[in-house]
Design a protein around this nucleic acid. Structure first.
Length: 832
RNA sequence: GCGAGAGUGGCGGAAUUUGGCAGACGCGCUGGACUUAGGAUCCAGAGGGCAACCGUGGGGGUUCGAGUCCCCCCUCUCGCACCA
C-alpha cells in the first residue's frame, strides 16, 4: 500500500474493474425490491459543467446507497440530443449537427465515466437516434388519431430579414438576435398537443405528489391557472346578439358600467361599422397589430381604448353599457371580452377615469363607506353587496354562487371554468429535431405516415441555410413523396417536433432501449416505473415536468403503461455558484470538472459537491473547501495505512459488546452512533452534508483513540476486531460518495469482492447505549452547569443531584426554588 | 401586485422532526510541533464583552425555557404577472 493517497493511480483502475465486472448492469428480478433513480439527462452541449457534476453525484450516491440496501437499482443515462445549439454550431464551425452532437456525446460520456458514476451504460440512448424517435413518431400518430395532436393557426416570432422563425430566447429586446431587425408576429398553421384535455387531472394530481417540493407544485398550479367563475351574456342594444364575458367576480355584476373588447375580438370591427367611430376603431386595431408584444414593452403600455359607438345592456340592471375596444384585454384569456366594473377593478377604474365613464359602488368594505365620487382607487377585496337588488347584504363568497345560480335560471349566464394553460405547441420550423410523420396529398388531404414506413428519417445531407428558414423544406428528396392512400405525388410535413417531446418519455424507454416491437416493452416498463427518485434543476419545474406528466397520462390512455404519474419523488437541486453568481463563461467564473479531477481526483470533487451544502440549496464553490475535502480523504487514507498491517486477516467484531473493556466499548459506540446518524441523514432527506460531517467526527475520534492506551491496539485481544469493525464500517459508509477511494482501501484490507456487493451497515441499538448521560442544569433557563449521571438515574434523583452540584449551590445560595423542571431526562431547570 | 423559499460567527453550513447545551463539521484565522523549507502533516485555540452579561433580520407575545411556536414588520432570492 502506498503511504500517500494518489487518486490518479486508483480511479481509472476501479472504473475499469466495475465496467468489466458488469456491476452496474441490471435486469428485472423478482427476489429484490426495485428502485429507479434518475437524473435529468443532459443536452450534449460539449462539456460537462459543475451543475451536471452536482446533479449526477447526488443521483449516484442514492443509486449506490440503495444497491447496498438490497434494492435492484436502475440508474441509466442518455442524451437529450436534438436542439438548436447543434444548428448554431453547424453555422459557426461548418460542421454537421449530427457530427457535432456525436462528438460531444463521446466526449461527455468519457467525462461522466471519469467521475465514476454507476450508470448501466448498456441502456444509453440518444434522442436523435432514429431508433428512438421512430417510436415518438408512432406515438404522435396515435395521438393524432385520437385528436390529441392537431393543427391550428398560431403566431410565432418572425424575422422578415432572415426569413425565419425565432425562438423566444432568440428575440433580444424585440429584435432578431442575428440581424437586429424588429421581430414581428406571423401566423402559421402549426401542430399542437391537446394538453388541455388533461388539465383537470394534471391539477388534481398535484395534491397526490406528497414527495414533490411544494414550490414546484405551486408553480405548476399557477401555470395551469384555474379560475372558477361565470360566463355572462350581455345583449346588444340593437339586434339579437350577445357578448359573452368570463368573470370570477360576478358579485360585482351590478356595478358593470361598460364593456371592453380585445382588439382581436371578432365583434370589435363589426360593431363599429357604419358608425362615425368606425375609422378610429379600425385605426386602433391596426395599430395594435403592429404593436411590439415582447414582454417589458407590454408592461409599460398605458391603458387605452376606443369607443365603438354601440351599446350593450347589463343583464341585471338593464343599463346601457358603451362598448369599447381596449388594449389591455387579452383575446387568449376567457372570451376576449370583459365586463368593466370600475369601482372594483383597478384597470377598469383607470380606464373609466380616462374616458369619463360612470362608476357605481356595489361592494362595501366592513368598516368604511365608499362612494363613487370620492373613490381614488378601485376596491378589489370582498365586502358586503349594495346596489345589487336581491343580493344586497350578502358577502362576496355568498353572492358569487347565488348570482351564478340566478343567471343560469334566467338564461343569462352559466357557471364557467377557465385555465391559463393552453395547448402545447410542438411545431418547430427547424432542422435538428424529429420529423413529424405527416404527408399532405393534394387529393386525399392530410395523411399519417404508415406505421411500416417509420421512422421518417431526418435526412443527414441537409445544409443549414445561413439565412434561416426551414431546411427540410429545401430538400426535395425529403419533401417529395407519395400519398399512402392514392399513391399520387404528395409532400411531407417539414416541421420538426419540440425537443420537450423527446424528454417527455425517455425515462420510460430506458427500461427497454433496444425493444423493436413497439415504443415500450410492457413487462419491463411495468416492472420499473414509476421513477422512485427524479433529480434535476428547478429550471424544469414547469415545462419539462408538466409535459412529462401529461405524456405519461397519454401513454397510459394509449395502453402502453399503467401508471398515472411518472415521478414519485422529486429532488430539485440548487445551482452551483462562484463568488455569489451562477457560473458562466461571460462572468469568467467557471470551474472545469476536468481540471478538478486532474488536481484532486473524482472522489474529492464528488465529496465537496455533497459536503458544501444540502442538495436543494445553492452551493457556493470554494477552492479551499475542495482542498479540505481532499484533506479529509487523506486523513482516512493515512489512518488505514497505519493500521492495515495490524488489521490484515482480522475479522470484524460481531459480538454484543457487553464483555468489552470500557474504552473499546466507547469506540464501538461512536462507530454505531455514526452508522445511525449517516443512515438517517441519507434515508430521510438526502442530507449528505451532515452525513459526511458525522463521518468526519468519527475519523477525528479514531485519531484520538489511536493515541489512547485503553482504546488502541494495546487495549487487549479484542482491540483488533473492534478496530476492524470501525474501519470496515467507515469504508462502507463512505463508498457511495467516494467509491474509488473506498474500493481501494477495502481491497487493501483484504476483501476480495467489490464494495458494490456489500451490504449497508446496520447500527446496533445496544452498541449505541452509554452507561452515563450528560445532564444540563439551568437556573431560570440559563445554562449554569453540567453533570454526568448513570443512565438509570430517575428524575427525582436528577433534581437532587442538580441541587447538590457545587456550582449550583453557590449560585442559588440556599434560596428555595419556586419550581424545578426536568425535561426528557436531559435537562434540569431550576426556577428561582 | 400574487405565490413560494430564505435571513444564524470572517465564510459554507449545523441544531428547525419532540421547544431543552446555539454555532456540529469544514473553510479561513491564530499559536505550537515536525522540518532545509512548507501552500505538506499533526496538536491546540477561538461568537462578542474585562466582567455581570449580550448574542440566530427587527419588534411584540406564549412558556420554567424560543433559532425553533404565535402576531406584526423589514430585507433578499426565485417563479408568475394587464388572467377579468
Amino acid at each position: 500500500m502506498e503511504a500517500r493517497y494518489d487518486p490518479a493511480r486508483i480511479e481509472a483502475k476501479w472504473q475499469r474493474y466495475w465496467l468489466e465486472q458488469g456491476l452496474f448492469a441490471v435486469q428485472e428480478r423478482a427476489d429484490r425490491p426495485n428502485y429507479y433513480v434518475l437524473e435529468m439527462f443532459p443536452y450534449p452541449s460539449g462539456r460537462i459543467h459543475m451543475g451536471h457534476v452536482r446533479n449526477y453525484t447526488i443521483g449516484d450516491v442514492i443509486a449506490r446507497y440503495k444497491r447496498m440496501q438490497g434494492y435492484n437499482v436502475l440508474h441509466p443515462m442518455g442524451w437529450d440530443a436534438f436542439g438548436m445549439p447543434a444548428e448554431n454550431a453547424a453555422l459557426a464551425h461548418n460542421i454537421h449537427p449530427a457530427q457535432w452532437t456525436m462528438d460531444n456525446i463521446n466526449y461527455m460520456r468519457q467525462q461522466l465515466q471519469s467521475l465514476g458514476y454507476s450508470y448501466d451504460w448498456s441502456r444509453e440512448l440518444a434522442t436523435c437516434d432514429p431508433q428512438y424517435y421512430r417510436w415518438e413518431q408512432l406515438i404522435f400518430i396515435e395521438m393524432y388519431r385520437r385528436g390529441l395532436a392537431y393543427k391550428k393557426l398560431s403566431a410565432v416570432n418572425w424575422c422578415e430579414q432572415c426569413q425565419t422563425v425565432l425562438a423566444n430566447e432568440q428575440v433580444e429586446g424585440g429584435c432578431c438576435w442575428r440581424c437586429h431587425q424588429p421581430v414581428t408576429l406571423r401566423e402559421f398553421n402549426q401542430w399542437f398537443f391537446k394538453i388541455t384535455d388533461y388539465v383537470e387531472e394534471l391539477l388534481a394530481y398535484c395534491d397526490q405528489l406528497p414527495h414533490w417540493p411544494e414550490r414546484v407544485l405551486t408553480m405548476q398550479k399557477n401555470w395551469i391557472g384555474k379560475s372558477e367563475g361565470a360566463e355572462i351574456y350581455f345583449p346588444l342594444e340593437e339586434g339579437t346578439e350577445c357578448i359573452a364575458v368570463f368573470t370570477t367576480r360576478q358579485d360585482t355584476l351590478y356595478g358593470a358600467t361598460f364593456m371592453s373588447l380585445a382588439p382581436e375580438h371578432p365583434l370589435a370591427l363589426r360593431l363599429a361599422q357604419g358608425n362615425p367611430q368606425a375609422e378610429a376603431v379600425q385605426e386602433f386595431v391596426e395599430r395594435w397589430k403592429q404593436q411590439n408584444r415582447s414582454r417589458g414593452v407590454l408592461e409599460e403600455l398605458t391603458k387605452e381604448g376606443v369607443f365603438t359607438g354601440r351599446y350593450c345592456l347589463n343583464p341585471v340592471t338593464g343599463w346601457r353599457m358603451p362598448i369599447y375596444v381596449a388594449n389591455f384585454v387579452l383575446m387568449e384569456y376567457g372570451t376576449g371580452a370583459v365586463m368593466a366594473v370600475p369601482a372594483h377593478d383597478q384597470r377598469d377604474f383607470e380606464f373609466a377615469q380616462k374616458y369619463q365613464l360612470p362608476v357605481v359602488v356595489v361592494i362595501q368594505p366592513p368598516e368604511q363607506n365608499l362612494s363613487a365620487e370620492t373613490l381614488s382607487a378601485a376596491y378589489e377585496a370582498d365586502g358586503t353587496l349594495v346596489n345589487s337588488g336581491p343580493f344586497n347584504g350578502l358577502t362576496g363568497p355568498e353572492a358569487r354562487p347565488a348570482i351564478v345560480q340566478y343567471l343560469e335560471k334566467e338564461g343569462k349566464g352559466r357557471p364557467s371554468l377557465h385555465y391559463r394553460l393552453r395547448d402545447w405547441g410542438i411545431s418547430r420550423q427547424r432542422y435538428w429535431g424529429a420529423p413529424i410523420p405527416i404527408i399532405y396529398c393534394g387529393r386525399c388531404g392530410m395523411q399519417t405516415v404508415p406505421e411500416a414506413d417509420l421512422p421518417v428519417v431526418l435526412p443527414l445531407d441537409a445544409k443549414i441555410p445561413p439565412t434561416g428558414g426551414s431546411p427540410l423544406a429545401q430538400i426535395d428528396t425529403f419533401v417529395n413523396t407519395t400519398c399512402p392512400v392514392c399513391g399520387g405525388p404528395a409532400r411531407r410535413e417539414v416541421d420538426t417536433m419540440d425537443t420537450f417531446v423527446e424528454s417527455s418519455w425517455y425515462f420510460l424507454r430506458y427500461t427497454c432501449p433496444a425493444y423493436r416491437e413497439g415504443p415500450l416493452d410492457a413487462a419491463k416498463v411495468n416492472y420499473w416505473l414509476p421513477v422512485d427518485q427524479y433529480i434535476g434543476g428547478i429550471e424544469h419545474a414547469v415545462m419539462h415536468l408538466l409535459y412529462a406528466r401529461f405524456y405519461t397520462k397519454v401513454l397510459r390512455d394509449l395502453g402502453l403503461i399503467q401508471i398515472d404519474e411518472p415521478f414519485t419523488r422529486l429532488l430539485t437541486q440548487g445551482m452551483v455558484l462562484k463568488d455569489g453568481a451562477k457560473m458562466s463563461k461571460s462572468k469568467g467564473n467557471v470551474v472545469d470538472p476536468n481540471e478538478l479531477i486532474e488536481e484532486f481526483g473524482a472522489d474529492t470533487t464528488r465529496l465537496f459537491c455533497l459536503f458544501a451544502a444540502p442538495p436543494e440549496r445553492d452551493l457556493e464553490w470554494s477552492e479551499q473547501g475542495v482542498a479540505g475535502s481532499f484533506r479529509f480523504l487523506h486523513r482516512v487514507w493515512t489512518l488505514v495505512y497505519e493500521l492495515h498491517a495490524q488489521l490484515a486477516g482480522v475479522r470484524p467484531y460481531s459480538g454484543s459488546g457487553t464483555e468489552l473493556a470500557p474504552g473499546l466499548r466507547d469506540l464501538r459506540r461512536q462507530v454505531h452512533r455514526t452508522i445511525h446518524k449517516v443512515t438517517v441523514d441519507i434515508e430521510s432527506r438526502f442530507h449528505f452534508n451532515t452525513a459526511i460531517a458525522a463521518m468526519m467526527e468519527l475519523v477525528n475520534e479514531l485519531y484520538l483513540a489511536r493515541d489512547r492506551q485503553d482504546m488502541n491496539f494495546e487495549a487487549g485481544p479484542q482491540a483488533a476486531p473492534v478496530w476492524r469493525e470501525a474501519i470496515d464500517n467507515l469504508l462502507l459508509m463512505l463508498s457511495p460518495m467516494v467509491p474509488h477511494f473506498a474500493e481501494e482501501l477495502w481491497h487493501v484490507l483484504g476483501h476480495s469482492t467489490s464494495l458494490l456487493l456489500a451490504d449497508w451497515p446496520s447500527a446496533q441499538p445496544e452498541a449505541q447505549a452509554a452507561a452515563t448521560r450528560l445532564v444540563v442544569i439551568q437556573i431560570n433557563g440559563k445554562l449554569r452547569s453540567k453533570i454526568e449521571v448513570p443512565v438509570t438515574t430517575g428524575e427525582d434523583e436528577m433534581c437532587q443531584l442538580a441541587l447538590e452540584d457545587p456550582r449550583i449551590k453557590e449560585l442559588i445560595q440556599g434560596q428555595k426554588p419556586k419550581k424545578v423542571v426536568v425535561a426528557r431526562k436531559k435537562l434540569v431547570n431550576i426556577v428561582i
